[in-house]
Computed example of a mutant assay.
Amino acid sequence: MSSNNMTRLPLPDGRQLSTRDDGASLALHLDERALLRARRQGELLVPLELALADQAEALWLLAYWCFANEPQRQSLALQLEQVDPALLNSGLLVAEGDELRIERALFWQLPGPFLRNVSHAGYPQQMVMHASGRRHPRRAPKPVGEVYRRFDANLGAWISLRTLDIEEDLARFNRWQNSARVAAFWQEEGDLDKHRRYLQELLDDPRVLPLIGCFDDQPFAYYEAYWAKEDRIAPFYAVDDYDRGIHMLVGEENHRGPHKVASWLNALTHYLLLDDPRTQRIVAEPRADNARMIGHMQAQGYHKDKEFNFPHKRAALMIQSREVFFERCSLA
C-alpha cells in the first residue's frame, strides 16, 4: 500500500497528531498528550488500555491517521475488549460477528472537524414550487464564512472553502473573469460594476452558494454550488431533490495542474456530500469541448453521462455519485 510517510498531521482546530510506529506497535499523540497505544497482530490493531470514555476521540483520530497516511487502505481491523455502542450507531465502527472494523467509505462520510459551518443535514423537508414550475425542497439558509477545511497530506497544504464576500473578493473575481483563459469558457468578462451585480444576484438566490477555494488560506479559485432541481440543468436528466451541481474556475495560474485539481475537486465534492447526507449525486456541465476539465473530472471518479445542448453551449453532463465517491475517493 502506498503511504504518505507522515510524522505529523494537522487538524482543522489547530491541534496536531503525531505517531511512533516501529512495525510491532503504534503510539499516537495529540499535541503532547499520549492518546493511544496499539499492538500490531498482522493486519489487526489491538489498542492497549483504552478506556471506554476515550474510544470515540481516540479511534476517530486513529482512523484519520491511517486513512490519510495510506490513501488506498479500505478498512482498519481492531480488537477491543469493550465497545461503546454509540460508535456502532454512528457508523465509525462496524461489527460483523467477532470482527470490528473501521471502513474508509463510512469514515469519510462522518463530518468530523472538516465541516466547519452549519449544514443542511438537519433541515426538515417541505416541498415548495419554483418559478420554473418544478417542485423542490425548501432550502436552508446559506452559511457564511468557512465551510470546509482539511490538510491534504498529498500536497502538504491546507485546502479550505469559504463563502464569497463581495467586498473582499470582487477585485479578484473581476481579474479572474477577465483573463483570456477563463473568459474562453465562462464568457463573463466585464467591469467591477457588472461583476458586483452578478455576484449579488447569486448571493440573493437560495439556489446558489458562491464559494472561494483556498490553498493555505490563499484564494485561488471560485465555485458555484447549486441545487440542481431548481437549475436549468434539471430538464436534461432525471434530477433528484437533493442533487447538487458545480461550476468551477481556477483563477491563479500557479494553482493549475492535475495534482491541484485532484485536491480541490475532491474537497469540493466531499464538502457537498457532507453538507447534506440526502445528496446522492454531484453534477457538472462543462463545455463539451473542454477536454482537459472533463479528463480531470473523470480521473476523480466523475463519469460523462452524455452531451446535450444548452442555449449558450454544447455541454457534457458529468456525474459523481455518493457511492462511487466514498468507495474510490483518494482523500488523504
Score class of each variant (00 low, 15 high):
L155Q: 12
V261G: 07
S119H: 04
E167W: 06
G190P: 06
G257T: 02
G190F: 04
P258R: 05
V144C: 04
R207V: 08
L202C: 14
F220K: 07
A262Q: 10
Q126P: 01
N117A: 15
A238C: 07
F236N: 06
E252Y: 08
I159C: 01
I159Q: 10
K194I: 11
I233K: 00
V261C: 13
I233Y: 02
S179Y: 05
M127F: 11
A171H: 10
V239Q: 04
A183I: 03
N174I: 06
R232I: 02
G133S: 06
L155V: 02
A228M: 05
R149V: 04
H259Y: 07
C214R: 15
H130V: 01
H130P: 04
M248H: 06
S132D: 05
N117S: 15
V147W: 03
R175N: 09
Q200S: 15
F215N: 03
E224P: 03
L209N: 00
A221R: 00
Y223M: 05
M127T: 13
L170D: 07
Q218D: 07
N154A: 13
H259M: 11
L170K: 06
I233F: 02
E224A: 01
Y237S: 06
D231A: 04
Q200L: 14
G190D: 02
F215G: 03
S119D: 07
Y226L: 03
P206W: 00
D216N: 12
K142L: 14
Q177R: 13
M248S: 09
V239F: 04
G145K: 11
G133Y: 11
E167A: 15
Y222C: 04
D191N: 15
G156W: 05
H136P: 03
V147C: 07
N254M: 07
H195L: 13
R207M: 11
K194N: 12
I166E: 14
H247R: 03
G251H: 12
G245V: 04
S263C: 15
Q125C: 06
I166K: 14
D231H: 05
D217R: 07
Y237C: 06
V261T: 13
F220S: 13
R138W: 00
R149T: 03
F185Y: 15
P143F: 04
S160L: 13
D241N: 15
V144A: 08
L115A: 14
D216Q: 08
L170E: 08
E253D: 11
G122E: 14
R134I: 08
L170A: 05
N174W: 00
Q126M: 13
Y123R: 00
R197H: 13
G251N: 09
D243V: 01
R181N: 13
V182I: 15
A180T: 12
W227H: 11
M127W: 10
G145P: 06
L203W: 02
H130Y: 06
H130E: 07
V261I: 12
E167Q: 09
V128A: 02
P124H: 07
I159M: 14
Q125Y: 08
Y198M: 13
Y223H: 11
R139Q: 15
V128T: 10
Q200Y: 12
W176V: 01
E253R: 10
N174A: 12
